[in-house]
Simulated assay, not measured.
Amino acid sequence: MAYKFVDNYREKGARKKLVEHLKSRGISDTKVLNAIGKVPRHFFFDETFWIQAYRDIAFPIGDGQTISQPYTVAYQTELLHLKKGDKVLEIGTGSGYQTCILMELGADVFTIERQESIYKHTIRVLPGMGYHANFYYGDGSIGIAEHAPYDKIIVTAGAPFVPEALLKQLKIGGALVIPVGDEHSQKMVTVFRVDEKDYEKIELDTFRFVPLVGDQAW
């Protein structure tokens, strides 16, 4: 299947307004805002719904999953404090929008998705947009151990606890960003790996994500 990507002045203007909106909500990392301003979010929507693409809302993408709200994407990305060349593990590829933001920031992205239909769609769409991540199909709650350790890990689904497998795959000095709570609301948590055995955890704002499903999740 061929994909036609059209990025005209209307969509570019809408992205600029979205960036200004995110600034007003407290997103201050210039690099993150620039990445949001570059990635054409409407490419992740059926053309019928392009009018929704630059609203600050989550939107269904099928199989009970959503493309995350832009504010949530920016918030999680800002917490990572990415440096160019960082090896990043993304748990929950979904539409691939967050993947593209990470790549715009220069990350080497390893991303895993457990919903087969979404995985198959995304691995066709993203390369067509020029984003060539390392795509995997499987249980994100156990990570991708063969490519560990990672500088940063980002989880884009709500977990009941921080999976032990992900902690072990985090590089010393690295950071893991994950929403943790029940199936209705989660606190955003940043975990820093101090050394082989010690971790520092910071609990932040409340969000609502689709549930993380897997051996070390729901």
Rank of each mutant, 00 (worst) to 15 (best):
V39E: 12
G92K: 03
N34C: 10
P60C: 13
Y199E: 11
F45E: 04
G214T: 09
I153L: 00
Q98E: 11
Q76L: 12
H121V: 06
Y131L: 05
L166H: 08
D215E: 15
G92V: 04
R114N: 13
H132F: 15
V194L: 15
R15D: 07
V73R: 08
T190I: 15
S28F: 07
F207P: 06
D46L: 01
I91K: 01
V88W: 02
E164L: 11
K4W: 08
G96A: 08
D7M: 01
T111W: 00
P60T: 14
E90Q: 07
L79K: 14
T99G: 05
K201Y: 05
D29T: 08
H121I: 07
I144P: 10
I153N: 00
K87V: 04
I67K: 13
R25T: 04
E183F: 12
T111L: 01
Y9S: 13
H21S: 06
G64V: 14
Y97G: 10
G138F: 05
H132W: 13
S117Q: 15
G96D: 08
P149C: 04
I51M: 10
A157M: 05
P163W: 10
E20H: 03
Y150T: 01
H121T: 14
L80F: 05
H81V: 08
L79I: 04
D205P: 02
G128K: 08
Y150V: 02
D86V: 00
A14G: 02
I178R: 06
G106F: 00
L126D: 10
L22W: 02
G94T: 05
S28I: 14
K84P: 04
G140Q: 07
G173V: 04
G94R: 03
I123N: 08
V210Y: 09
H42N: 04
V73Q: 09
I118C: 12
G85E: 05
G138M: 08
P211R: 10
L89Y: 03
T156G: 01
A157C: 07
P179W: 06
D46C: 00
D182F: 07
R193E: 11
F43P: 00
Y97T: 06
I123A: 06
P149S: 04
Q186N: 15
G62T: 10
D151W: 00
V19E: 07
F59G: 12
Q169I: 02
V180Y: 06
S24T: 09
K31G: 13
T122F: 03
Y136E: 12
V6W: 03
P160F: 09
D182C: 09
T48P: 00
D195K: 11
I67Q: 13
